[in-house]
Simulated assay, not measured.
Amino acid sequence: MTNVIDGDAVAQSLRDDLRDAIETLADADARPGLATVLMSDDAASETYVTRKHEDCREVGIEDFHEDVDANAPTEELVSVVEDLNERPEVHGVLVQTPLPEHVEAERALQAVAPEKDVDGFHFANVGRFVRGTPRFRPCTPHGVQKLLEHAGVEIEGADAVIVGRSNLVGKPLANLFLRRADDGNATVTVCHSRTEDLAAKTHGADIVVTACGVPELVTGDMLSDGVAVIDVGYNRVEVSERRSEDSRTESGQSDNERGYEIVGDVDFESATEKASAITPVPGGVGPMTRAMLLYNAVRAASEQEGVTVDLP
Rank of each mutant, 00 (worst) to 15 (best):
V285K: 02
P100A: 03
L223P: 00
D20I: 13
V298I: 09
Y295K: 05
S193C: 10
T219I: 06
E66M: 06
M39N: 01
G127Q: 11
V49N: 13
P172Y: 07
A11I: 07
Y234D: 08
P100R: 01
V161E: 09
T47G: 01
V78Q: 10
L176D: 00
P287V: 04
S251Y: 15
D225I: 11
L198S: 10
E261V: 03
M292L: 15
A26H: 13
D225S: 14
P215I: 02
P172K: 07
A43E: 12
Y48I: 03
F136A: 11
D67W: 14
A160P: 05
A44F: 14
R165Y: 12
V103T: 08
F177Y: 09
L148S: 00
L168Y: 12
A301Y: 05
L293T: 06
E241Y: 00
A275Y: 02
N85G: 10
V10C: 04
T219Q: 14
D20Y: 13
H53E: 14
R242K: 15
A124F: 01
A277S: 12
Q253I: 11
D225Q: 13
A275H: 06
A151Q: 06
I230L: 12
P88F: 09
S224M: 12
A160L: 06
L176I: 02
E196T: 15
L311I: 10
A111L: 06
T210C: 11
G132Q: 04
E23A: 12
D8A: 09
E303K: 10
A151D: 05
T2C: 12
G233I: 04
